[in-house]
Amino acid sequence: MSAISELSSISRKKGKATPEEKKANSRDNKAAYIFLLPWLVGLIAITIGPMLMSLYLSFTDYNLLQPPEWVGLENFTRMLTDARLHNSLGVTFTYVFIGVPLQLAVALLIALVLDKGMRGLPFYRSVFYLPSLLGGSVAVAILWKQIFGTTGLVNQVLAMFGIQGPGWISDPSTALGSIILLHVWTFGAPMIIFLAGLRQIPTMYYEAAKVDGATTLQQFWRITMPMLSPIIFFNLVLQIIGSFQSFTQAFIVSGGNGGPSDSTMFFTLYLYQKGFGQFDMGYASAMAWLLLVIIGIFTAINFIASKYWVFYDD
């Protein structure tokens, strides 16, 4: 039996629980809740209360300075006619559907290259991770302007070829693109997770595949992809969730106003402006729950689709 077919038999093995296993499982309840205890306490004491509070606030008019007043569905009906909100949804969707695949592809590619034994590996890993260390530092805004400003590095290079580049971060037609690029630039986190995942794949599979004469590409599709699929799935789910909530980069680059002309007005940025800038926390809470529903739908789709391409060894 070749390693590859062996592998697929393992990964497909979703055996039903035997009676004995079921008996064993029923014993897990006590142990499970003990293991879950810290998380449950945190959930009940810290997370759920504020979450439900925000749900309640989404049905109120709440300006932060005075007690909330119940207004029923008014916040939600207001959202239907809020053109800026619709625009912000468009911006966010564009960002998610372009930024996430792009960033994950780059992260996976670099992780694959770096996983193969080569000299200077720790060095490269660090170099590629460095940009992600910066986080939401104020310095990022300055750096980005130095590169993509009207007189920034990119335009200086273009000028050498006689091209007059636009102000990448200040032109409404390119500003979102530059933020997506900033997002891709910080691919360090998914790259690290991919690297750790790659390390979990037993090397013997590859050796067996080599013996069977599989090409590198075949190895990638038949071994790496299935074995890495739980991790790819994790990155995909979390990156989608994270990108829908993306806030810091746009906030820093646009100075918090989502400009120019709302072209980088992300949903959460608008939510923040409503809540803290315009003291409309009721509306902001309603927006948050709308986003939660949207993210929830996409995550559910992800989980359903995962049955067809993610392989667990259990």
């Binding site: 810290i46 209360g49 504020p50 925000s54 803290f276």
Partner: peptide, 21 residues
């Protein structure tokens, strides 16, 4: 599912209730 839900809510709206807490 609840655990995943807790990641999905934008943090800006829970700041105030959490701060009160």
């Amino acid at each position: 599912g609840i655990m995943l839900l807790t990641i999905m809510l934008p943090f800006h709206v829970v700041i105030v209730p959490q701060y009160i807490l």
